[in-house]
Design a binder for these strands. Sequence first.
DNA 1: TGTACATCAGTGAACGCGCGTTCACTGATGTAC
DNA 2: TGTACATCAGTGAACGCGCGTTCACTGATGTAC
Lengths: 198, 198
Amino acid sequence: MAQKALLKSSYHHGDLETALVKAAISLVRKYGADHLSLRAVSAEVGVSPSAAYHYFQDKDSLVSAVGEFLFDQLGEKQELAISKVRSTGAKGARERFEAMGDAYFKWALSEPNLYRLIFGGFCELPDSHNDSKAWQLLEKGLDDLVQAGLITSANRVGGEVLVWSAVHGASSLVIEGLMPKESFPIVIKGVQRSLGMK
Amino acid sequence: MAQKALLKSSYHHGDLETALVKAAISLVRKYGADHLSLRAVSAEVGVSPSAAYHYFQDKDSLVSAVGEFLFDQLGEKQELAISKVRSTGAKGARERFEAMGDAYFKWALSEPNLYRLIFGGFCELPDSHNDSKAWQLLEKGLDDLVQAGLITSANRVGGEVLVWSAVHGASSLVIEGLMPKESFPIVIKGVQRSLGMK
DNA sequence: TGTACATCAGTGAACGCGCGTTCACTGATGTAC
DNA sequence: TGTACATCAGTGAACGCGCGTTCACTGATGTAC
């Protein structure tokens, strides 16, 4: 029946909740998180403005749903980049670590408006972010570096917050035009030096 | 005459341009950069909405003026913090360096809405940010560390971008509730390790 | 010192607009018999 | 298989509102004579 609804153009939409989130993303991409309106999202889906209220309490709820969706998506981009690394052993651990940061940076640069929605105070992200894919990948990446003998356990301590801060900060500054994008590799080099990476 | 205008409550305001910028800051502080309206700013100053158009081409121009003002203000906060350091020699250089980062972080935490206005894509900052006070202080701070023998010239290379990225990123993540504020010193420690600071 | 005048900072009414949210409703759907 | 019915996803009109911007204007000001 969900299937049926998807197949025929029908009165009932099928999965309006998801459709609204995706339409919102499409509009934020183009016009920024400020400038997003519930009415425009509904119109994009081809549905009346009030329909959204069957799925979201208010506009803020929709925006927060978008934020969570995008935060997950960012994690998935990183996971994909990591999975593409073919090298093994220490070389693999290093390449996966770098791929993770590169994916984050690349996503930020290619989708500045989405990036700002997540990290610009527009939405409430669950504070259980330590369960998020992005965070877990970061932990795993650092663990791998230790296991590969590229960094010591001692230097690993606090690595998550340093890496995330540096990568996130550099991405943000480049997006806002305050730092040339050529500086990103320099920041990464600096982080690796901090970790004592060989 | 400007003096006179300031003294008496008169038809002419005296320095409406500055008054508008300051009123805008006051409103952004409370309600965020999205939610700022020209009309509210005018009302805050006690002037009709159209008066603003004698000083700013449109709303965006006002917001950009606010951004520049705040960016300068952040630099001044840092300068003030640095100037309060009494120690001399290597100890002084280290304390000044740390005071600079602490001031940045402290300002971000105490004024998240202002911080987001500057760094959240709401305004056009002049891309001559290398002339900004904040940037010059950072350069000078690193030079001092070299001169004090706390870091080597070799390690200083690229120091600006690493330091700014890490401090900015940590501030941003803490503001958004994605990182506990207790992590900030850990990030700073990591940066110092990267610089090979003794 | 007094007066006529040009300047221009600020007024206030008006414009058209899009917004978030509500509400009583409709009509397609799946189900019970 | 056919029919009556309850459900509930989506409608569409309406609400009150605040927004950015414009425009012809007013009246306080400083200046020239």
